[in-house]
């Protein structure tokens, strides 16, 4: 029988952890970009994109991430595409992230006082100029804390991608647990790994929130 030292376990988990980190970053960055588009559609003047954006948000907030991944994983292969797990994972998490971020940011845009819109339109700014120079900069200040807070959700969301076979931290942990027969140790280490990734983020989000409230 093969035996595993603690270092063997940790070393392999670190590789999985790196993939978790990479997937989170990709999902967060791409999801943020997509979320911005969804946000613009959601608060824009045109009706059709607004309805579409709302549907996108409702759909991805109202269904489990796991089933979004399953549907993508099996749905795309109907079109003859060979979808590897990492692609389905990245795509699914991106869409998931974009829906949540768009909704968070919409709240921030709506929290910008109405007078700001009126004042900037008095200055004969076009809609895009208002957005670019007046509304979004102020909304952005409000949005930093909840956005950082949501990043924690993204990191935790990546754990679900293990189920469709993406070998990130949780999947690596399952495989090692099966090989070493030490599930308690291995899953504790996995949980520790996520904690190390998430705790600084949520701590930072909390302190940002406190700062923002103090400024008011």
């Amino acid at each position: 029988m093969m035996s595993f030292s603690l270092w063997d376990i940790v070393r392999n988990l670190l590789i999985g952890g790196a993939l978790t980190l990479l997937l989170s970053l990709v999902a967060f960055v791409l999801g943020g970009a997509t979320g911005l588009l969804v946000l613009l559609a959601r608060i824009g003047k045109w009706r059709a994109p607004r309805a579409l954006a709302q549907m996108h948000i409702e759909l991805f907030q109202g269904t489990p991430l796991l089933l979004q991944l399953f549907t993508l994983f099996f749905g795309l292969s109907l079109f003859g595409l060979d979808v590897p797990a990492w692609l389905a994972a990245g795509l699914g998490l991106t869409l998931f992230t974009s829906a949540f971020l768009a909704e968070i940011w919409r709240g921030c845009v709506e929290a910008v006082p109405r007078g700001q819109w009126e004042a900037s339109s008095c200055l004969a700014m076009t809609y895009w100029e208002q957005m670019r120079h007046v509304i979004l900069p102020q909304a952005m200040r409000l949005s930093i804390a909840p956005t950082v807070g949501f990043a924690v959700q993204v990191v935790k969301g990546t754990a679900v991608t293990s189920i469709i076979g993406f070998a990130e931290l949780t999947k690596t942990g399952s495989m090692i647990a099966n090989a070493t027969y030490q599930p308690f140790l291995v899953y504790s280490l996995v949980a520790l790994g996520y904690f190390i990734l998430c705790y600084p983020l949520s701590h930072y989000a909390q302190s940002l929130e406190r700062k923002l409230h103090a400024a008011r």
């Binding site: 924690v152 949780t170 599930p183 308690f184 899953y187 949980a191 996520y194 998430c198 705790y199 949520s202």
Partner: peptide
């Protein structure tokens, strides 16, 4: 602890880990 770890890992820890 529970807010900073994924639900799936908590589940695995309870179901696979606690028996040991």
């Amino acid at each position: 602890l529970f807010r900073n770890t994924p639900f799936l890992v908590q589940l695995f820890l309870i179901f696979f880990g606690l028996p040991s």
